[in-house]
Amino acid sequence: MNAAIEVHQLEKTFSGGSRATGGTKALDGLSFAVEEASVFGLLGPNGAGKTTAIRVLTTTLVPDSGRAAVLGRDVITDAQAVRSSIGLAGQYAAVDENLTGAENLRMVGYLNHLPRNMARRRADDLLEQFHLSDAAKRTLKTYSGGMRRRLDVAAALVARPPVLFLDEPTTGLDPQSRNDLWEVIEGLVGSGTTVLLTTQYLEEADRLAQKIAVVDHGKVIAEGTSAQLKADLGATVLEIELADPIVAGRTAELLKGVATKPPAVIGRSVDIPVDDGARVPMEALRILDQHGVAPTSFSLREPSLDDVFLSLTGRKASTEGENQ
């Protein structure tokens, strides 16, 4: 494999936080490798260490230990070379409010040391590509959140970097803008760009990433293609909704026998990973009927990455540490 990004045993502890624990451990032996011209998804809840990993890879944060390289260049000892080959779109729309859209992109071009006329042309092309041409001469104060986010991603593309870091690029975007951005990313990968994407949206990783690493508490807890991660879980998920959480708990207990992995109780519904085929649901219904449990709904569905996260950590990805 030709790795565009290599991350090996990264550790980083932030001082502050709680004194008793000696700080917050953001990265705890994080390792992964990203193949060239592919999208790699770092999937995990807020506070899992995704942004810290991006900051190390984009040379803005020095890790306590471990090493990382982009296109074979070490991010610590060869930082300037790394900066010349990457683009970064942050979780926060890092654009200058007082400048116009065109001025923002030109500034990034100049600071990437593009010749003036080329920086100007790139700015115009990107504004058009991201449907911002009409707003090119307006200051960003007049932009909506979605427009700012698009400009932020456009700014990451100004120098046509071979490696792109997108830190939760579609957070806060409307479905149309999200779809547009997904198409842009797919186009870039088609022309040879390597993309490292962090996301909390399981659907996004599923759609874009050839390979996904599930990150929790600063380390990778599972890695593979979307299909592999789902296959580990079982082919199908049986989703049963009950009258109340107590009955849900009892149902999980009763159906342990038919599950391939321990069932998960979420409120008054139960998710049960099961094998393919019609036999299992019939068996499940028979058991429930025998014990006088009547579900309010009963369905089979494809496992989602939410199920993967739940089965790996025992928690839902989307409800963890919302404000960190």
């Binding site: 030709n2 565009a4 060239e36 011209a37 296109l71 074979g72 010349s84 080959s85 990437n112 040391h113 593009l114 010749p115 080329m118 790139r122 120098a159 046509r160 970097p161 071979p162 022309s191 040879g192 760009t193 390597t194």
Partner: peptide, 22 residues
């Protein structure tokens, strides 16, 4: 190094010394 770098390196940065860039 990588084919991607070559294929994508169309926008070659301007040349100039470190000090003049600073």
């Amino acid at each position: 190094m990588s084919t991607a770098t070559i294929a994508l390196g169309v926008d070659q940065p301007d040349t100039g010394s470190r000090a003049s860039w600073a």
